[in-house]
Amino acid sequence: CHSECLGNCSQPDDPTKCVACRNFYLDGRCVETCPPPYYHFQDWRCVNFSFCQDLHHKCKNSRRQGCHQYVIHNNKCIPECPSGYTMNSSNLLCTPCLGPCPKVCHLLEGEKTIDSVTSAQELRGCTVINGSLIINIRGGNNLAAELEANLGLIEEISGYLKIRRSYALVSLSFFRKLRLIRGETLEIGNYSFYALDNQNLRQLWDWSKHNLTITQGKLFFHYNPKLCLSEIHKMEEVSGTKGRQERNDIALKTNGDQASCENELLKFSYIRTSFDKILLRWEPYWPPDFRDLLGFMLFYKEAPYQNVTEFDGQDACGSNSWTVVDIDPPLRSNDPKSQNHPGWLMRGLKPWTQYAIFVKTLVTFSDERRTYGAKSDIIYVQTDATNPSVPLDPISVSNSSSQIILKWKPPSDPNGNITHYLVFWERQAEDSELFELDYCLKGLKLPSRTWSPPFESEDSQKHNQSEYEDSAGECCSCPKTDSQILKELEESSFRKTFEDYLHNVVFVPRKT
């Protein structure tokens, strides 16, 4: 048989008469490798580009789960590009990614509803959504962080984005990388972005840091009482949809009607710091009717980097990364020049730590249904340095008659930039024990000054392991946590139920 035959053949030295091919099969003959313009397919066939392209389009058009959109890589027609490569849609070739590779997620039936953290986790790592997304989240724990972890990498949506009755959302900033909504599939009414009845939605994105392009379709905003109209108009300008909307697409009466839409800028007039305090004062603000001013709200939190936005980490279910302080308005003076500047002394802060701070007014709604208010920009203030805590785990070892090696770990709280350490030492008198000992005694162990690591005695271990207080009263049991108490109650309830079950099964009433 021919060298490319495997198993047997019907005619000697003829690659077209093989029972099976050793390498690849091409047009009725066995070959060692697939010549151009053919590609290896499933490690035994040679196919042309049209064959591989037909497989790709067949799966793409069917949208069946589990099928493969075949691509070409290293002269092979394979189910998908290997790690580190992405497909070129024009020629199906796998090309190296520039940075992290995109991950295209194809949605069944063309859309997916995100109504819980669990459903959001199914899209973790996706960068391109081939379909439409509907966000409908009523509640949950730590929602802002969970949504950002699972949806934060999405850069492109081919269909539309719909935010509907998501009472738990305060902001859409968890879509931190969303840059493009194509609108290839539109919501009824030709809408590519749809926001309806979101009672706590206050911000779409921080438009000073976020760009969003909507290729096709219109915007729809109705019944978002805490979303200011200025935020919607800003989205029109940034996304390129200005002029597409009709009169009733953006409701003037049901958007922002319960919001404090600040239209003035508060400026800080005085800032002073110490290692654990920050004193702030800002310019006074009074609405047209000074009785509408209820006070100020001061927001602050630790910020290692200057990239904080107002609604980071917030949701309507209680999660809030900001510390909020309510401040009463100052006494009002008739003389504008003698107006008191409101302020606040922030206490209990960490030394040498940068804080993000902003302040906003708290006002009631005027009778004319106009909203007044003022808010400052987010500023960054760093507390002063102070003395560091003591170095940890000092170790001293003498390696000769004239040297001592000293080692330690950095302090747990540096409280500033540590530039150097101060080492103090003092000579001590020799131990009298060394002169009084009889060095001729056998088995004498000389006193040693070398360091030995501390260890816990058996008594201390027994005390720590004991669940009861000892007789001397030195140790006591740790208080039980809520989960331990709940577990004990469940076990007790189970024992009672099981005992009742045994009584009912074992003891049967005697027939009379």
Rank of each mutant, 00 (worst) to 15 (best):
K103G: 12
K103Y: 04
H106R: 03
H106E: 15
L107V: 09
E109K: 12
G110P: 06
T113N: 06
I114L: 08
D115Q: 04
S116C: 15
V117G: 15
T118N: 04
S119N: 14
A120V: 08
Q121K: 13
E122V: 08
E122Q: 09
E122S: 06
L123S: 01
L123K: 01
L123N: 01
L123V: 12
R124L: 14
G125Y: 15
G125F: 15
C126T: 01
C126N: 00
G131R: 00
G131L: 00
G131N: 03
L133H: 00
I137S: 02
R138I: 03
G139A: 07
N141Y: 13
N141R: 11
N141I: 10
E146W: 13
L147R: 01
L147Q: 00
L147C: 02
L147E: 00
A149W: 12
N150T: 03
G152C: 06
G152H: 08
E155L: 05
E155N: 10
E156G: 07
E156P: 00
S158I: 11
L161M: 08
L161K: 00
K162T: 08
R164C: 08
R165F: 13
Y167F: 08
Y167L: 15
Y167Q: 04
A168M: 07
L169R: 00
V170W: 09
S171E: 03
S171H: 14
F175Q: 00
K177Q: 10
L178R: 00
L178F: 05
R179G: 13
R179D: 08
L180P: 00
L180Y: 09
L180H: 09
I181M: 02
G183N: 00
E184D: 07
E184L: 08
E184Q: 10
T185Q: 06
L186F: 04
I188G: 09
G189Y: 03
S192M: 02
F193E: 00
F193R: 00
F193L: 11
Y194F: 14
Y194I: 11
N198E: 00
N198P: 00
Q199V: 14
Q199D: 15
N200A: 04
L201S: 01
R202P: 00
R202V: 07
L204R: 00
W205F: 10
D206V: 09
D206Y: 09
D206H: 05
S208Q: 13
K209Q: 15
N211R: 12
L212E: 00
T213P: 04
T213D: 12
I214E: 00
I214Q: 05
I214M: 11
T215R: 15
T215H: 07
K218M: 06
L219R: 02
L219A: 05
L219F: 10
F220M: 09
F220S: 08
F220N: 12
F221W: 02
N224Q: 07
P225R: 04
P225G: 01
K226L: 09
K226R: 09
L227S: 00
L227N: 00
L227R: 00
C228G: 03
I232L: 07
I232A: 08
I232P: 07
I232F: 01
K234A: 08
K234Q: 13
V238W: 13
S239R: 10
S239C: 09
G240L: 15
T241D: 11
T241C: 05
T241V: 08
K242D: 09
K242E: 06
G243P: 02
G243M: 12
G243S: 06
G243V: 01
R244L: 10
Q245I: 10
E246R: 10
E246I: 07
R247K: 10
N248R: 09
D249P: 06
D249Q: 06
D249A: 05
I250A: 14
A251Q: 12
L252S: 11
L252V: 12
K253C: 08
K253N: 08
T254L: 13
G256T: 10
D257G: 13
Q258M: 07
A259I: 13
S260P: 13
C261M: 01
N263F: 12
E264R: 07
E264K: 04
L265A: 13
K267E: 02
K267F: 04
F268G: 00
Y270R: 03
T273S: 05
F275R: 02
I278H: 00
R281K: 13
R281H: 05
E283I: 04
Y285E: 01
P287M: 05
P288I: 09
P288R: 14
P288T: 08
D289P: 07
F290R: 07
R291W: 14
R291Q: 08
L293I: 09
G295S: 13
L298Q: 00
L298N: 00
Y300A: 09
Y300G: 01
K301P: 00
A303V: 12
N307M: 05
N307V: 07
T309A: 07
F311I: 06
D312I: 13
D312P: 15
G313A: 04
G313F: 13
D315Y: 13
D315M: 08
C317K: 02
C317V: 05
C317W: 04
G318K: 07
G318R: 12
S319G: 05
S319M: 05
S319V: 10
N320V: 01
S321T: 11
S321V: 15
W322T: 01
W322H: 05
W322S: 01
W322Y: 14
W322L: 03
T323P: 02
T323V: 12
T323Y: 03
V324E: 15
V324P: 09
D326I: 05
I327K: 02
I327G: 02
P330K: 07
L331N: 10
S333Q: 12
K337R: 07
K337A: 08
S338P: 10
N340D: 13
N340Q: 12
H341I: 05
H341E: 10
W344E: 03
L345I: 13
M346Y: 01
K350C: 07
F358I: 12
F358A: 07
V359E: 00
K360L: 14
T361I: 14
L362Q: 09
L362V: 04
F365R: 02
E368S: 08
R369I: 11
T371A: 05
G373F: 14
G373A: 12
G373R: 06
S376P: 01
S376W: 00
D377V: 08
I378R: 03
I378E: 01
I379W: 04
I379E: 03
I379D: 01
Y380Q: 02
Y380H: 01
Y380I: 02
V381A: 01
Q382T: 08
Q382R: 08
D384L: 13
A385P: 08
A385K: 13
N387T: 10
V390R: 12
V390P: 13
P391T: 03
D393V: 04
P394C: 11
I395R: 14
V397Y: 06
S398Y: 12
N399C: 15
S401E: 11
S401K: 12
S402H: 08
Q403A: 05
I404C: 07
I405A: 10
K409N: 13
K409W: 11
P410R: 12
P411A: 04
